[in-house]
Design a protein around this nucleic acid. Structure first.
Lengths: 356, 356
DNA sequence: CAAGGTCATGTAATTGCTTACATGATGGCA
DNA sequence: TGCCATCATGTAAGCAATTACATGACCTTG
């Protein structure tokens, strides 16, 4: 069943059928109706590949997620896909895994698929070494590339990110204001966002006159075992004589581990150990006490990416990069007075704008 | 840059270039190498649309997820995509939303895209009314359709599902063995899986000689507000004089709400209120006490779907439907002795096989 | 040495659309 | 009435691959 079948059944040429399919106004109402009836009767669906070949686009965006099962990326995925579809673009998904080689293969896969643009999710796409920035060739060749939570200044590369440094500084400052001095920083990856968080952590310590102690900064894998890993690590640290009274974590799941550790040792929260997470995911509400966390404005980041990507695809000028301020959502893990459901939003700092 | 450019630069015909691209053995080693070098130098990438037009496939599977931000569907998505890609299929993602109209539009979108097959995620795709089974036309027209956690007996429809009825019966039996008699059933959707769970709940009550009380069966929206909704609902129920000593929930997030309710009222868990969730998601481990939950073998379901889908696409015979047994993972919310990390697996029932 | 087989390579048809350009009908207006 | 603008419609040339079939070189073998 193709456009020729429809044209002969309707007694018109294929050009007319095509016009009907594409809402071209140069068709009489009568003819249009007849063609539409034939199409409906026959269950004809235009061949998308042929259309793509002629137009050189199938209106597809590639989404590359190192780990779509992660709550944060899943939420982003869901929101990005819906938004792009609203704009008439469908999304091809690649869950690459986190290794550089796998992510690179993902980018090449998307290129081979001739997607119109691609969105790379997560801060691991901005590397310090040039070979880590695996999308630059594609961007240079004219395919718009958007980074969610990463920033790279190059033509064709668009990005939206949270001001993690500032958010981290505020989070750690909040712990210090609660009287904490020995503050752990548990992180899961020292990628671009991880580096920004670390800088914020260090800045907050510095402004409070607390010296930076490398022994308090530890990395933990982020997966289903993270809770147990964190518990074990903190137990070992205390056994070795390392003291701490708070934890600033780069991910909510690590914060859950810290809370569970405190509970397992009979420590009071936040009295003996105050805990801050990052991403303000569902997990924060599930813990008891509930966990203070940084909301990094995922919706706003995604909105910006969809806007700039569609603008770029339609040849309009688009702001290359935009930074959004995080919000510290204060809960019981840092504030004994905070009851369930009565979350306080600490800061709502102004947005900063960059690029064009 | 197309196959003609490559062929003229390499001094061969387009057929030879095509042969090199497709690993056709009828090319001399020397020629092959020359062509590959030209391709590498020029950065040529074959046009996927033209290829798709000729072959009438772009090796794409459509994944339709009503809500990809849900932890369960996200995990399925991630695993399905990786597995399909290993088999040489890329995935087009549609996050439709849950309404029937939206899901139907999603199916039609995928059909228009000419995907090779589609996977519909979630039990809402099996309806009691015929018009709810929105994929039957596509299946009849020859596109394989796979249902994750749903079952429908028709040619071209493949499915993998958890024996929710049995799993629910075991879960409720476990509560009864713990001495509970007034067992709530909190559910989020009365779709095919919801109906199976309800039947299991009723069966367990019946075999224990406990009469079924409709007042204990309540529905709750599943979203970020679910915790608060459940808390409020249970508070109201108790205020109205409804008594209960356990809760069997169709989703982990609802179980979290039940646990939080108990904590907020100073009730002991599991003494005053025992709680069972469903899906064995990360949330179960975050709560304190940790939550007993049904693991419905997502990996196995996904594996079966990938296997049958690829078999169907390659024209091989494939088992149409397969049911997997759930596993009850016992934690502290039903068993005071269960410590963190020391989870017990209650049952590991045999699998049942159906269809061909 | 001729016939025939093997193998690398080329030619050209095919896939199903979009669209620039051609055509022809109709109607208004001088 | 004749000319031209307008508009519906048709013709045919792309788009960039795959692949059936043709060709011709070379080798084997009777």
């Amino acid at each position: 069943m193709n456009i020729y079948d429809i044209s002969s059944r309707a007694g018109v040429s294929i050009a007319t059928v095509s016009r009907v399919l594409n809402q071209n106004p140069h068709v009489s109402a009568e003819t249009r109706e007849r063609v539409l009836r034939v199409i409906a009767d026959s269950g004809y669906v235009p061949n998308a590949f042929a259309r793509g070949l002629g137009l050189n686009t199938m209106r597809t965006i590639g989404l590359l997620s190192p780990d779509a099962s992660d709550g944060y990326q899943a939420a982003a995925l869901n929101y990005l896909e819906s938004s792009f579809r609203e704009q008439g673009y469908d999304c091809l998904l690649i869950c690459s895994g986190t290794s550089l080689a796998a992510r690179k293969a993902g980018v090449e896969n998307l290129k081979g698929r001739h997607v119109d643009g691609m969105v790379l999710m997560g801060s691991s796409f901005v590397g310090e070494r040039p070979e880590e920035n695996i999308y630059l060739r594609e961007a240079a060749e004219g395919m718009p590339v958007a980074l969610l939570n990463g920033e790279f200044d190059a033509p064709g590369v668009y990005s939206a990110l949270c001001d993690d440094e500032k958010a981290a500084r505020e989070a750690v400052r909040h712990l210090i204001e609660g009287g904490k001095r020995r503050i752990l920083h548990l992180y899961h990856a020292m990628n671009s966002s991880g580096r920004r968080k670390l800088r914020g952590y260090q800045a907050a310590l510095k402004e409070a006159g607390i010296s930076y102690d490398e022994a308090l900064v530890r990395s933990v894998e982020k997966d289903r075992k993270s809770i147990d890993h964190v518990m074990k690590m903190l137990r070992d640290m205390e056994a070795e004589g390392t003291r701490f009274d708070a934890a600033f974590c780069s991910e909510d799941i690590l914060a859950v581990g810290a809370v569970k550790y405190a509970l397992s040792r009979g420590k009071r929260i936040p009295g003996d150990l105050a805990v801050v997470g990052y991403n303000n995911s569902l997990l924060c509400r599930c813990c008891e006490p509930e966990i203070t966390s940084v909301d990094n404005q995922l919706r706003a980041l995604c909105d910006h990416i969809v806007r700039t990507m569609t603008a770029a695809l339609e040849g309009e000028a688009a702001q290359r990069s935009r930074t959004f301020a995080g919000r510290l959502v204060i809960r019981a893990s840092t504030d004994g007075r905070a009851g369930s459901g009565l979350n306080t939003v600490k800061k709502h700092s102004q947005e900063r704008k960059d690029g064009v």
